[in-house]
Structure formats: C-alpha cells, structure tokens
Design a binder for these strands. Sequence first.
DNA 1: TTGAAAGCGCTAACAC
DNA 2: GTGTTAGCGCTTTCAA
Lengths: 344, 344
Amino acid sequence: MKKKRVSLNDIAESLGVSIALVSLVLNGKDAEQGISAETKQKVLAKAQELSYKPNHFARGLRLGKSFTIGLIVSDIANGFYSRIARNIEDLAEVHGYNLITCSTDEDIERELRLIKLLRAKQIDGLIISSSQENPDEFNRLKAEGFPVVLIDRCFDGLEASCVVVQNREGAKQAAAHLVEQGYKNPLVLAIEPAHVFTIRERCEGFVSEMKKHSISPKVEFLPFDDAFNEVERLIDKLIQNNQLPDCIFAINNNIATACLQVLRKYNIDTPNKVGLVCFDDIPYFSFMNPAVTAISQPVDDISASAFEMLLKMLKDEKTELEGGVKHLPVELIIRESTIKKINI
Amino acid sequence: MKKKRVSLNDIAESLGVSIALVSLVLNGKDAEQGISAETKQKVLAKAQELSYKPNHFARGLRLGKSFTIGLIVSDIANGFYSRIARNIEDLAEVHGYNLITCSTDEDIERELRLIKLLRAKQIDGLIISSSQENPDEFNRLKAEGFPVVLIDRCFDGLEASCVVVQNREGAKQAAAHLVEQGYKNPLVLAIEPAHVFTIRERCEGFVSEMKKHSISPKVEFLPFDDAFNEVERLIDKLIQNNQLPDCIFAINNNIATACLQVLRKYNIDTPNKVGLVCFDDIPYFSFMNPAVTAISQPVDDISASAFEMLLKMLKDEKTELEGGVKHLPVELIIRESTIKKINI
DNA sequence: TTGAAAGCGCTAACAC
DNA sequence: GTGTTAGCGCTTTCAA
C-alpha cells in the first residue's frame, strides 16, 4: 500500500502554478526572482500540507552533488575511529552534509571497492584512514579534482591532503619513559599489515629511541583480527621459551586491551613483572586495573582539521585542490601500568 | 581541473551503439535480451577502459532505490551502538547495501529532522533506536509502506517491527543479585529523557524486584550529556547529606563508567562501600578496577534480527509490512564490583 | 539483435 | 511575476 511520494509537480498542479515557481519558492530564491509574497505563502502552505520532501536523486542528478561525504576507516567499532566518526558527523551536519561510514578491516581490496562504491553513490568528498600500500589511488582522486582528505595514516609521495599525529615523537616519549622506569627488555606488539604508516612510524620511533639506550626491542606483527587470541598465543610461546619481555609497547588500543586481558589471565603482574604502554588513549584506560599509560591523540583536532580541509575543497571547486600534510602533537599520559611499585 | 564523469552515453558513442544496449549489457541482462557475445565483450571492454562508474542518482531516480539504509542512534561513539553499527554495516554490505549513520543525542526534534532528511536522501529503509515519546512517527512510516525496524527501544501501540532485549528481567536479576550480596540501600542512576523505553523498563524491573525485598530504591535522572560531571555533582551532594547508597544500578555503560570514575576520585571503596552493577556490558568492564558486574546484551543477535527483518521488507515490497516485537534474552555477568571482599 | 524514446523529479536559463 | 523548456544519466518497453 505504498503511497506515491509527492513531487513538485503535485504541488504545482494542485495550486495551478508552474513547477518552476514552486521550485524557486522552496529553494528560497523567491526574492531575487521577485515572486509575490502571496504566491509564496500559498506554495509554502501546500508543501507543508502535502508534507513534501524533495527527491534527493533528482536534485543530485541535476546539481551533481549529494551533500553526503564518505568516511572509511579500518573498524568503526574501535573507540578511536568511532569518536572521530561522531565528531565529523556533527561538523558535517552543521554544514548540511551527512556521513556514510564504512569499515575495511585493513583489507586493501575491500577499501578500493568501497571507494569505488561510494563514488558511484556520488559522495561529494571522502575522509579516509587508508590501509593501502601506496598513495596512487589518492593521487589519482586528487588529479581528478575529487575532494579527499587522509587521516591518521599518510604515504610518501602523497599529493592529497592529510592529517596525522606525531607518531614517531609519541613512540619515542613512550620508549624514553620505559627506560627511565628501569625497563630493559621491551617487546613491540604491532599489527599487520606492517606497511601501514602509523604502525611503521610508531615502531621506528620506539626502536630508534631504545637504540639510543643500547636496547634492541623485539617487534612482533599480529594479524588484525582476533587480537586477544593472537596475543595469548604469543605470550604463551614467550613464556614457554622463557623469553617474556619486561615491558610491552602496544601499537593501538585494541592490542593494549588484549594484552591486559592476557596478562591478567596468566597472572603476570603489571607493571612490576611486565609494564605496558599503549599508543592511543581511550577513556577507559584511566580506570582499568592497572590504569594504562598511553599516548593520547588529539581526536577532536584530527576531526576538525580534516573536516575543515575537506570543506574548503567542497566549497571552492574552481581552484586546484591543495594537498599538504598536517602534523598534530600527541601527549604521553603516565598511569599505573608503567610505574613499578616499591614493595612488590 | 575536473574531468567529466563517463556516462553510458560516452561508451555508446565511442562504440557506435545505442545507450540502451550498453545499459543492458552492463546490467547483465544481455542473455534474456539475446545480445551477441561479441558486442557484449566490446561493451564490457570499453566500460573497463573508460573506468565507467554508474551514476547512482540517475539510477536511483529511475529505480526509486538507493541501496542505502539509515541507522539512527543516540550516540554512535557509545560502544553499544558502535558495535551494532559495525554488525549491521557488515550484514548490509553482503546484500549490496550501505549504511548512513546518525546520532541524535536523545534530541527528539533532531531525530525527526534526521528521519526526514534521510528519507529525502531516499534511503530504502531505516533501523532506529528512537528517543521519541510515542510511536506515531513510526506507525506513520509503516502505514506509508516504508521499511523501518526499531531496535533497543519500543513503544506501546507500536505497529512497526521492533527488536528489544528483556530489560525488565535483566534489571530484576541485577536487583536480586545485589540483595543476595547483602546490599540494602540501592540508588538507580538513570538518564533523561525518562520516558525512554529502556530507561523505564530497567528502572521498573529493578524497583519492582527490590520492593519484593521491602526495599525502595531512590531513582535519579541525569541529563544525557556530560555524564561524569553530572554523576560527580550528585555523589558530592549525597556525601554532603550523608545519603550515600551502598550500591548503584547504572542504567547504561556510560553512566557506569562515569560512576567508576567518580567513586575512584572520591576514594569510595567499590564494592565494599558502594557496589556497582551496570545494564549493558562492554568488553572493557571485565578488566577494569574493579571489574564491573553487568547485564550483557546480545549485540550480535540484535543486529542480525533487525537487519533480517528489514531485509525482508526491502525484498518483498508487494506484501503488507508485518510488524511485531522480538524480545531477546540478556545475561547477568557477575564480576568484582558487587562481590564484597571478606577482609576489608 | 539492436535502437528509439519516454520519463523518473528537479533546476536554471530564458521567454512572456 | 510567472511559465516554458531543456536536460542531468539511467532503465525499460516497444518497435524494427
């Protein structure tokens, strides 16, 4: 029993005026066209009465715009990305845009498919934390004049715009802190794919700082899925081989959480037996047991900067798109998981 | 320097065939139309070469479908909803649909605006956790034949389809558990707006169970925003007036988290001085300090049921939409925050 | 086997 | 002040 949607035509007919007139009024262009206040009221009233809703397809087809932007991340259920999504959603709404969000699970092919799909759906612009191996796809998009902003992860040779944090510096701070606390045998727990910008930079920053103190950390790359079991398998193996580290640098909040679970399960005292520091802070870390030392990323700034960049491109379509990478600072927040207790 | 998008016409022209032919081939209707394998190949090759992407607007305008579904929740950054969003996103993708997600912050007007907007954007269906006061809007949608499934929250008199959990039963279990543990002076921490289905059912379930044990819990409704400060203000007042409860029933994961923060800040021993139980379990609760006793909701089942219902409506458009409410069971997971230690 | 053409609903240039 | 009209890109019916 589907009712037909009401169109401009329906309003025009029932009022005995032209479609164009109705369109003009409903788009607020009555002033510049000199439409009488009377007809304007009639039209507005009728539109209300029939509860007219503009057809987005027709409008989009005509205008070539969807007022929808895409957001692609690895996993929208990860607190880091879901906070970004929420921020961008709010910013977008202010400017009349909606957000269509997709998760890739770090799958390169899937990411390309999603980009294609979203473009077919005529999104006006894209914000993406990419899992690609190189910047080609994004340079292509930029060359086409398609507004795109990368967040979180960057590429050498990228020509499109990008917002990232100071991964290296953050990782170095974490390393320096661990050394200061007397940890000597660190393990870096990263995830695949290892080429990902954030992973690489964080690992390199951490390792290079450790090297300064004549320490060479082990680095392990875990599959993206199923963090808990992967971490457990690894820790188990390390225990068997008597190779347990005395501290862990977790590459993201997921891995850190998994670590905490596993350490607890194996009754490994944190921070006294094994310290833990995480890149990326989430609200829960501050009251976990133990509270987790973490490098906090400026989520609000990332969202705001990225959206601002995108909006600029969305607005002045004439000019060449700009490009450029913006680096945002991070902050090491020291909590219980890296401060050994005096009496153990 | 925007390149023009390539259209069916471009392919047709450069091949010297008709648009219709190209359309047929690209939609895989070449068999039933009896198009020669040769032309088919030509078309496919050309489409590939020009990297043709169908224009979603034109298609949608013609077909009246967007292959996009809407998801409206109060806050996509809340773990409960972000997990649901991720699940539905995955299910949707399998069936060729995308998800456009919006947050309302429990704002009734905003919710209505969003529904209108998404419909204008021609979403094919809607999954929503609503903050409305009554089912009118959704009964209207159903009457119009628009596919909609409510999740998490329901209404008396609702005619549309709905998936909820057994809020009352869960809250009762929580209450019974607290009593069993010897707690005698509970406080219910809920949020506004108080008319929300989940809030109401959880409060009622909890209170009615407590009444059986001759206990009348206090119930406080906090504004939706800024949970931490609201909880702190309240706890502070209770301490001043010497009215601190001996246990708290937090209505959702946000409030529970805020409670934990505040209790810690005030150095109030949990569970010995004040116990804490939460409706809705999130992964972090299991390794917080103390680990939080919580009522776990079947997030996967909620997502799957809701999507399945929606998909059914999306598919057979002919038949009258069904309606009906599905109730899913919950489970009390007992952890440290409600088990008093023997030696305190 | 293929082509022609109508029409989805809307906007904007132009005509009256 | 208001109407007419072309056309955005696509699908689908009918004709050839």
